[in-house]
Design a protein around this nucleic acid. Sequence first.
DNA 1: AACAGCACCTGTAGGC
DNA 2: TGCCTACAGGTGCTGT
Length: 269
Amino acid sequence: MPELPEVQTIAAGLAPVLVGKTIREIRVHWHRSVEGGSASALDCLIGKEILQVGRRGKYIILSLGGSPLCRVTIHLRMTGKLLFRLGEKDAPYVRVEFFFQDGSYLYFVDIRKFGRIKVWKPDEPMLPCLGPEPLDAKIVTELLLRLETPRAIKTVLLDQRVLAGIGNIYADEALHLSGIHPLTPARAIPHSKRCLLGRVIPELLGEAILHKGTTFSDYATPDNRQGEHRQFLHVYGREGGSCVKCGSVIERICINNRSSHYCPACQQI
DNA sequence: AACAGCACCTGTAGGC
DNA sequence: TGCCTACAGGTGCTGT
């Protein structure tokens, strides 16, 4: 499940290879991987040069040349991968293939078919509903201090309109590091803990980027390598294990139909 | 405004 | 072994 650090790693791996390449052909094997469900939506990319590879929230952004300039976003959702080379088990799950004029390829592989590729119209605002990037402690802290909603803080952190790029893994980890129970209403979190959370989120994401992300099941870098951050997780996926801070047993509860992992001693409402 | 439920998908893990 | 069910989860939609 790629979240911000994983998508950042993927974009950083794609950029040096893809920039400067011109698309020769695109083959779509699963139409619904293309936003709108029509394979022909990608036809406008043929003959265009990739100028830039970036990231916004959990989206990879390709900027292509020509006139007008063209922008493409790719969301990997749960099982999406962008690969230069296919691993042994990837072949049956190739949904879209990009062929470049220099003879190289890029594969969009996606077991569960949730991932989406979207071409944006030239005058269309791109990804208008995303909140700010959570990589700057000042921005995140100020945003957290303004929260007055009664919604559970875990739900708020997963809301991409509030902050763009945090998913289930890093939400759980950030709340544990800050000593905040995931069900705490956002407006009930004391000032000091909001400031702490505001520092912890960018720090945690920054460290995960350095570790090239967290591989749980399907995430891989474009070189088909795994992330190294999993060994640093304190609560996510560790139900029944012991808390690294106090030794209590990590618990798992369901919030909004998603699992939340937390330490009942360190994180009290 | 908040939230619950569902749809999209398929591999994997568990029970019997 | 083989069948069945539950589960994983990001986003977007509908209904309450």
